[in-house]
Design a protein around this nucleic acid. Sequence first.
DNA 1: AAGATCTATCGACTATCGTCGATTATCGAT
DNA 2: ATCGATAATCGACGATAGTCGATAGATCTT
Lengths: 119, 119
Amino acid sequence: MNAEVKPLDRAEAEEYASWFKALADATRIQIVSLLARRREPMTVGEIVSVSGVGQSTVSHHLKILAEVRFVLVERQGTSSLYRINEACVSCFPTAADVVMGKPVPASPACDRTGDRDGT
Amino acid sequence: MNAEVKPLDRAEAEEYASWFKALADATRIQIVSLLARRREPMTVGEIVSVSGVGQSTVSHHLKILAEVRFVLVERQGTSSLYRINEACVSCFPTAADVVMGKPVPASPACDRTGDRDGT
DNA sequence: AAGATCTATCGACTATCGTCGATTATCGAT
DNA sequence: ATCGATAATCGACGATAGTCGATAGATCTT
């Protein structure tokens, strides 16, 4: 056998892939970095006004970012308030470390504290 | 105006997007993590035997990873030796930090030392 | 209730992606 | 020169993605 060192488990690789896929678009990166710099929520309209793309497109991107929990949503009146998921601020760079082979301690990489699902 | 905090420059966002796009696939993540754990080069055949996909597919993925300099190539005989780009091991998690809003010092995030292009 | 505002969804279009099988190219050995 | 082994490229296919305009849904105001 030649595989004395094996790659990541397929399941783990697929989870990380879903994270990277969510950021595999310049517009979504701008949205995430914007929400991360502002620690406070932003409405869709505010994001639209700085994103350079249409409202439906921004809504679509926000949905993708929310599906992987990079951002969290909260409705307030007619607006939807989007904010960064603080848990991902720390867990995502750790995922990048793991992919790049850095041995990561047994600490929970992403416990998603403060995350709630609205099923 | 409402945009007192602006997102990343479009150019920077697009560069990061190209990096994340290169890892937006579970197979490529497995290849990168494999090469990162082994610090030594691997041939395409070795990677094929642990990747679960065909040879042409692996070659295609390696090309994508090489285009963004995550991996480096060197021909030896009939084989191609692929190895991780050590520069990206440190610069890529830093990019993840930047996207997540962490203020990064003025150090060069990715100087790609040890990288040479074969144009 | 009616209107106004904000956001989500739908349908469509084009472009790109991941995978495969088959072929071609490169290199070493006979 | 020929053969064998390895890797890269080609062509094709279905699937997915990014964008837009238009429409529908939700919520406040009057």
